[in-house]
Design a protein around this nucleic acid. Structure first.
Lengths: 202, 202
DNA sequence: GTCTATAATAAGATAGAC
DNA sequence: GTCTATCTTATTATAGAC
């Protein structure tokens, strides 16, 4: 096990390789569906070597979720109460859709976890996430009160952005099966742009 | 194993009990996360007795998916090309949201399967589902051409209905963690009503 | 039809050589 | 740091009595 001092370059590289492989497998199979064997094979390492870097399968999963939660909410944090309301919301939608396109594995890791009752991140949801969302809902409400955007339930507005954007990562197979060769994300961005501008027009 | 003749009442009842328990466990844990032990315990039967009715864990899962696919698309099938366009669409949204509220386990079973690449239902998606969706998109396009509803990409319109409604079943823990004690479904229905009426107003 | 007992295998984790 | 070999446990499935 790595000693309790600054990790060497090879340690950093191996940990990164392992986490990337683990993300591949966990996001595709869920926690219990994933096997350490498959993660090791994907990483190109032996199973005991993997467990030299992470003490258990659980530890890998935990490391991934922790890293994910750190960055997953950045697009919402970046919605600026002092900006132009509609453009701030559209910017949030755009950033969220880009995350679905560029980081579908992260989206599916998260979806797997929440779908199965969020056993490992329930506190993060009901504390950190709730706090952030409530504060942004307050911002949305001032925008609605000022007449800058139309009135809707602010929490459901945020849920709608989550569901509409994450759908393209989480249900990618279904979307492509139905849509055929057409790129989903271009059409999605145009559609979401229309949707939110029409719904929120004062 | 049940003989190849009409099932007795006790057989029917046991099969139904098992499938209900299996739905509980598969929808909460995914296919590989589910164990036959847990399904048996939930059903109140011994494990060998379970496997007397279904030859394998895989067979239970298959039976559930088959039954699900049969009924999952009914709300879309019911959207009538001869009806009043906006009300037909709103009716579809309402039925779909009701399914999320009344059959969240089915929604999560489906989500688990698609999220993990739809290995068992890929054909159903790219054939049956695609055929149905394409035909309903043609209907939507005639409505748009006639000016009865505003123009949007029809496939993405349908994706939006799926994602916005299923979100309340699949991400139920998250929605409730953020929303607190407020009932999600009442607010959701009001929100979706507003959303689609504003977006589709000609 | 239902059960107890058990076989067979898969998977997480460790020992110990190099 | 990395590997082969192995232990241990969990899990699917079956045998065979009742």
């Amino acid at each position: 096990m790595p000693k309790d001092r600054a990790p060497t370059r090879i340690q950093q590289k191996n940990r990164a390789t392992i986490l990337d492989a683990a993300l591949d497998v966990f996001s595709a199979q869920g926690f219990r569906g994933a096997t350490v064997d498959e993660i090791a094979a994907t990483a190109g390492l032996s199973k005991p070597n993997l467990l030299y870097y992470f003490p258990s399968k659980e530890a890998m999963h935990e490391a991934l979720l922790e890293r994910l939660l750190d960055t997953w909410l950045d697009p919402l944090r970046a919605m600026d109460g002092d900006g132009e309301p509609l453009e701030e919301i559209m910017g949030y939608v755009r950033r969220k859709l880009q995350m679905s396109r560029d980081f579908p594995r992260e989206s599916r890791l998260f979806a797997n976890e929440v779908l199965q009752g969020a056993p490992r991140i329930h506190d993060a949801l009901s504390v950190d996430l709730k706090t952030l969302v409530d504060s942004k809902c307050a911002v949305l409400e001032t925008w609605m009160a000022s007449g800058a955007i139309a009135r809707v339930h602010p929490h459901h507005l945020i849920f709608s952005i989550w569901s509409l954007t994450q759908h393209y990562a989480d249900f990618d197979v279904q979307v492509r099966a139905v849509l055929g060769p057409e790129d989903p994300f271009d059409g999605a961005m145009a559609f979401l742009d229309t949707l939110y501008r029409r719904m929120l027009r004062p």
